[in-house]
């Protein structure tokens, strides 16, 4: 069974997923960050493959993408860094990127490498559900990859149902109409939207992402869904200082408690 599905069978609430950009802050920090996150108690990790033009991302993740590219990160290197990762890490791992780097790598080769490496899911915000269904769903399934689809406050109930039907793993509930990294807490409208989604009783678990920046927003998100995803706030904390390992641990426990 796919590790994402396994996770949600064991744990239905308070799932914490962390996003970081591979190759940031340094080209070789990928494995160290992964291991530290796992030992700190993260449930799931999204490994970002940097892209020159990340449309859905705000300034923080744009910057980490650009730095990672300057550091020389690419998919080939990432897969080679991750080749033995499953000897050490058992939690679900996802790759998050945009469609163009994957297309140039080759979608079939990408899926094959993901399976071999032990990647459980893929998030490509600019691959629309319709195109995924028509062109790639059979390929993803044959490599036991979950494709994670997004919903937003503007997504109609009817479309949420469709997306839920096409989803495997979980539904990524984007908290607001925005790019990543907005930090305002949650408005009444957002909470109503979370409630509306929760009341739809989707087949898939839901994780709320975008705008989760501290314990308070994490806890609130967990009240309305199966857990939350943190990206920008985590990235902001990373730098070249070797003390970052302790800070990662502290950060995760500050979110949890």
């Amino acid at each position: 069974m796919n590790r994402i599905n396994e996770l949600f069978e064991k744990k239905s609430g308070n799932v914490l997923s962390i996003y970081f950009t591979a190759g940031y802050p340094t080209i070789n920090s990928t494995i160290e960050i992964l291991k530290t996150l796992v030992s700190a108690g993260t449930d799931m990790i999204e490994i970002g493959v940097p892209f020159s033009d990340p449309l859905a991302d705000g300034p923080v993740i744009q910057k980490s993408n650009l730095s990672a590219l300057k550091n020389g990160m690419n998919l080939k290197l990432l897969f080679s860094q991750l080749q033995n990762i499953r000897r050490e890490i058992n939690i679900p791992l996802l790759i998050m990127s945009y469609i163009n780097p994957i297309l140039q790598f080759g979608m079939e080769e990408f899926c094959g490498k993901c399976e071999k490496t032990g990647i459980d899911g893929v998030i490509l915000p600019d691959l629309p559900p319709e195109v995924y269904m028509e062109e790639y769903s059979a390929l993803f399934q044959s490599h036991h990859l979950n494709n994670i689809l997004l919903i937003s406050p503007q997504t109609t109930a009817e479309r949420i149902r469709e997306i839920d039907k096409l989803s495997t793993g979980f539904v990524y509930v984007v908290s607001s109409s925005s790019t990543t990294g907005v930090k305002n807490g949650f408005s009444k409208e957002q909470l109503e939207y979370f409630l509306r989604v929760r009341n739809m009783k989707l087949h898939n678990p839901g994780l709320i992402g975008f705008g989760i920046s501290d314990h308070e927003t994490y806890e609130l998100a967990c009240k309305y869904s199966n857990g939350a995803i943190i990206g920008s706030t985590f990235i902001k904390m990373l730098d070249n200082d070797p003390g970052r390992i302790d800070r990662i641990r502290d950060f995760i426990s500050s979110i949890r408690t």
Partner: peptide, 21 residues
Amino acid sequence: GHPGVIHGSRTILMQNDDGQI
């Protein structure tokens, strides 16, 4: 250029081997 996706459209674009525009 080579085929790929830029600004929401599948078209021909200038990019490197890694798909960076």
